[in-house]
Amino acid sequence: MVRPREFDREEALDCAMRVFWSKGYSGTSTEELLAAMGIGRQSLYNAFGDKRKLYLEALDRYQEQSVSEHIARLTRGSSALSGIKALLLGTIADNAIDRANGCMGVNSASEFGATDADVNAIRAGGAKRLKEQLVARIAEAQLNGEIEPQMNVEEAALYVGATMQSLQLNARAGMAPAALRRLAKFAVERLAVRS
């Protein structure tokens, strides 16, 4: 009896995530996944279940990583407003391939809309985590006099979130990095207290 080849599950999952991130769920074939992951069909089924389960696990992994990176940028700024600016600018990937891929979470919303409860739940979990940190940072900016105190914190957080999605969609559509950075800076300027 032939023993199945051993492989690193986490590494294989990262490879699958990159394929799904680039091509979406429907645009990715099982054969492409197997080639990228360097495993056989039976290993995929044994380790991950099926293509859908693999996609959900890859999306969850992507959300966890990207939201953690967003929160790190948001919270390490020298001021609350500079943290928000770092969050938006950090949404613009330095790597051309990652920039062209956009955001796997936003891409999943474009592909599935609100029709898939499992996909929605993964996106909602990440969005909730980021929004909590964003609301806190906006409130801090108001206390520090960086953002108008009468501005509704929840609406400002929605504005920043929508700007992030716009940056990611425009990056995927090929907008130049310099234009993306101008858009991010413009959005931050709309939040800042007017002198």
Rank of each mutant, 00 (worst) to 15 (best):
R3M: 15
L143M: 09
G126K: 00
D116I: 02
V135F: 05
T115V: 08
G77Y: 03
Y25I: 07
I147R: 00
A156E: 05
T30G: 06
L74V: 02
S68K: 07
D98T: 12
E31A: 13
N152Y: 13
V188Y: 02
R190C: 10
A80V: 04
A179K: 12
N144I: 15
M37K: 03
N107R: 08
E10D: 14
M37W: 01
G49L: 05
R190W: 06
A86N: 07
R123K: 14
A121K: 12
L44V: 03
Y25V: 06
G174N: 06
Q168S: 12
R3E: 15
A117G: 14
L167S: 00
A157V: 02
V193G: 05
D50A: 10
G83Y: 00
I84Y: 00
A72W: 07
N46M: 11
L183W: 06
V119F: 00
D8L: 04
D50W: 06
K185F: 15
L143A: 11
A171E: 00
S26H: 12
L87N: 02
D60I: 05
A136H: 07
V67D: 02
E6V: 15
K128N: 14
E132L: 14
V106H: 01
R194M: 10
Q150E: 13
N152H: 08
M17G: 07
L13D: 03
D60C: 10
L88H: 00
S29A: 06
S26K: 11
E69Q: 12
R172S: 06
G24M: 04
D98P: 09
D60Y: 13
L81P: 00
G27Q: 02
Q133V: 12
D118E: 07
L54Q: 03
T163A: 04
F20R: 00
K51A: 06
D14S: 15
A93Y: 05
I138A: 00
G24H: 04
M1R: 14
K23Y: 13
N46Q: 09
A139P: 08
S195Q: 12
N46P: 08
G174Y: 03
R9G: 06
G77E: 01
G83T: 02
